[in-house]
Simulated scan of single mutants.
Amino acid sequence: MQAALTGLNHDQLATLMDEWGQPKFRVTQVLDWIWKKKVTSIEEMTNLPAALRDKLAETHRLDALEHSTTQGSADTTRKFLFKLHDGRYVESVLIPANPALYGEKSDRRTLCVSSQVGCAYGCKFCASGLAGFSRNLEPSEIAGQVLMAERLSGERVDNLVFMGMGEPFANFDRLMAAIEIITAPWGLHLGARHLTISTSGLVPQIQKLAEHPQQIRLAISLHGATDEVRDKIMPVNRKWNTEKLFEALNYWNSRKKQHLTLEYILIEDINDDLEQARILASHAQKLKAKVNLIPYNTVDGLDWVRPSEDQCRAFRDVLKNAGVSATLRLEKGHDIDAACGQLRLKQETEEGIIEAPVKG
Results as ranks from 00 to 15, higher is better:
146 V>G: 00
148 M>N: 11
152 L>T: 10
153 S>K: 10
156 R>V: 14
156 R>P: 03
158 D>E: 05
158 D>N: 12
162 F>W: 06
163 M>S: 01
166 G>L: 05
168 P>M: 08
170 A>D: 12
171 N>H: 08
172 F>M: 08
174 R>C: 15
174 R>Y: 14
175 L>M: 11
180 E>N: 14
180 E>W: 01
187 G>P: 05
190 L>M: 13
191 G>W: 00
191 G>V: 00
192 A>K: 04
194 H>Y: 10
195 L>Q: 03
195 L>H: 01
199 T>L: 05
203 V>F: 01
203 V>D: 00
205 Q>I: 03
205 Q>K: 08
208 K>G: 02
209 L>H: 00
210 A>P: 05
211 E>G: 08
212 H>Y: 13
214 Q>A: 15
217 R>L: 07
217 R>W: 01
217 R>E: 03
220 I>S: 04
224 G>F: 03
226 T>H: 07
227 D>K: 04
228 E>V: 15
230 R>Y: 08
230 R>V: 09
230 R>P: 09
234 M>G: 09
237 N>S: 12
237 N>W: 04
238 R>G: 11
239 K>Y: 11
241 N>F: 06
243 E>I: 12
247 E>M: 08
249 L>P: 04
250 N>D: 15
255 R>H: 10
255 R>M: 08
256 K>V: 03
256 K>W: 02
257 K>I: 01
258 Q>V: 13
260 L>P: 00
261 T>A: 12
263 E>A: 12
263 E>K: 07
264 Y>Q: 07
